[in-house]
């Protein structure tokens, strides 16, 4: 978002807001907060803008000094073959870890909300702890286990590690969705002659799907950006973040900026599309329902 857009947004906010007595007296909520929000967003976006800008830098080896504008790095990303290999590894790891973690986590989430079973609090703790444990500890622990068992570190061990820390996040995300699901809907399905199988695939699953997709996206994002746990369990395998860490000392090639910017743009576009389409859907529903 540019500053102008931000200003326009804040104008919209302040213009339509009737001056409350409290706000008028203090003058706090009326212009200070929107201004603060704009400055905050600018601050949050500075490194992103920098990374994006330097993906167009006509750099030679290190990408620190501005040497002129070029599209070359965007067009020939894989000239730096290491970047592309590392990126490819990150994709493979992200996709595999996401699929497994989403399945395991969704199953646990359904069980947690829908069934009674022994050791409930113990299981909740086991699901909560991985989120409360610092990544270094998770990474070092797994690496110690692999070391003890004599497992060769590589792509496989990274995937195992990523599934582990994604499962809890999937459980939390899907669980929220399961608990908003009205049990009467499934009962209605059974009442209307649906067998347990049919009820699950025709009613439960489609209704949980938004939550499951959100969990999968979160898993992928966590996996794709993870460095600390990966670093302990990667062996010689490179991932995109690990590549950046290793090259940080001697300078990051602009190709890395290209990949990061492309991933960023893709993610932002996906999020914006989903936001706008759901806003439009809300509007349509309101129009039709009213």
């Amino acid at each position: 978002m540019t500053l102008q857009e931000g200003l326009a947004v804040s104008e919209a906010v302040t213009a339509r807001k009737p001056a409350s007595r409290r706000g008028a007296r203090l003058g706090f909520g009326n212009w200070l907060l929107p201004l603060y929000a704009i400055i905050s967003f600018v601050f949050l976006l500075i490194p992103i803008a920098y990374t994006f800008a330097f993906s167009f830098n006509d750099s030679v080896k290190s990408n620190i000094v501005w040497r002129g504008f070029t599209f070359d790095k965007w067009l020939n990303v894989c000239d730096q073959i290491d970047v592309c290999v590392a990126f490819g590894n990150s994709l493979i790891i992200g996709i595999s870890a996401t699929i497994v973690a989403t399945i395991l986590g969704t199953m646990i989430a359904i069980a947690l909300v829908r069934y009674r079973f022994p050791f409930r609090s113990g299981i909740s703790l086991l699901l909560f702890l991985p989120m409360a444990t610092p990544e270094v500890v998770l990474g070092a622990g797994l690496a110690a286990e692999f070391l003890g068992a004599g497992v060769q570190k590589g792509l496989g061990t990274i995937i195992i590690a990523h599934i582990m820390f994604c499962v809890s996040f999937v459980v939390v995300t899907v669980k929220a969705r399961v608990s908003t699901l009205d049990p009467a809907l499934e009962e209605a399905g059974r009442d209307l002659y649906g067998s347990p199988n049919q009820v699950f695939w025709r009613i439960t699953f489609p209704l949980l799907l938004p939550g499951i997709i959100a969990a999968a996206l979160l898993s992928f994002a966590l996996s794709f950006d993870d460095f600390i746990i990966t670093n302990f369990n990667a062996g010689t395998t490179n991932t995109f973040p690990k590549y950046i860490y290793i090259s940080a000392a001697r300078g990051i090639p602009a190709e890395a900026n290209v990949i990061a910017s492309a991933v960023f743009l893709l993610a932002i576009i996906l999020v914006l599309i989903s936001q706008i389409s759901s806003a439009m859907k809300r509007k349509r529903l309101a129009a039709a329902g009213g």
Binding site: L185, A188, D191, G194
Partner: peptide
Amino acid sequence: FQRQVNTVFQSYALFPHMTVLDNVAFGLRR
């Protein structure tokens, strides 16, 4: 699902992801 009994639920329990027609046809299709 083996009983020839149907219920009108307190909250109606209409399937939100289906059209009105698909809701009504659900039991017939099953």
